[in-house]
């Protein structure tokens, strides 16, 4: 079971490394959005609060441009049957979730580096708060976007539908992470954000359990 999940993850990773289908485009996407923000706000002094919000805007849209690929590419190429014949649905789900987790942490890492380099007013005071927002936020982001990717892979208008469906589901998560990022700039202690951490963690758990229970229905018709 675990080794099968790992095998699916490795397959996706290897395929990604070989085709560079999502990765290059994703990195460029991050660069483009951040430059866009820089151009649009040239000469303005932006508060740390505003920048915290914008950081998650960048992360959200980058995720939306890359995380649907795992399912959409299987659907587009018709390799879904290959996987359906090889293993249980839940194995596929967790394999893809793992892949998206790695992808989102990659995105977060890259975005944050780019952000810290370009946005002068973005000064994080409490790194532990900031890091836990990134990590737990990434977990939640990957969990919700994976199941929604599975849904939209079966719909007709895949690209535009993805952010539309994901946004409302992700909003409680995004509000919480934005809030936490702001707190980390203000220099809050980790203990003060305990409520936030609990929300983020339970969001991840709830979404993963629901997805696990529902994935069978999406995967096989």
């Amino acid at each position: 079971m675990l080794s099968s999940i790992w095998a699916i993850f490795l397959k996706d990773l290897k395929s990604e490394i070989r085709t560079r289908y999502a990765l290059n485009a994703l990195l460029m996407f991050v660069v483009v959005t951040i430059s866009m923000i820089l151009f649009a706000t040239a000469g303005e002094v932006m508060s740390g609060e505003l920048l915290s919000g914008l950081l998650w805007v960048v992360i959200f849209f980058s995720a939306m441009s890359g995380l649907s690929r795992t399912f959409v590419s299987e659907e587009d190429r018709g390799t879904v049957i290959f996987l359906q014949l090889a293993t249980r649905p839940s194995v596929v789900y967790f394999g893809k979730l793992l892949f998206n987790l790695v992808l989102i942490f990659g995105i977060n890492f890259f975005v944050v580096i780019a952000y810290l380099l370009t946005m002068e007013n973005f000064k994080v005071k409490s790194f532990d708060v900031f890091l836990s927002a990134l990590i737990l936020g990434g977990l939640g982001l990957a969990s919700a976007s994976t199941i929604i990717a599975a849904i939209i892979a079966k719909a007709n208008t895949k690209g535009t539908l993805y952010p539309v469906l994901s946004f409302p589901v992700l909003l409680p998560l995004l509000i919480t992470t934005i809030n936490m990022t702001q707190l980390s700039i203000e220099g809050a202690k980790l203990a003060e954000t305990f409520g936030h951490l609990r929300i983020l963690f339970s969001y991840f758990v709830v979404v993963v359990i629901a997805s696990y229970l529902l994935f069978d229905y999406i995967w096989k018709e």
Binding site: K11, K14, S15, R18, R77, G78, F82, L85
Partner: peptide, 9 residues
Amino acid sequence: PYLQLYDEF
């Protein structure tokens, strides 16, 4: 015929 394989491998 509708079963597809991974053509990048």
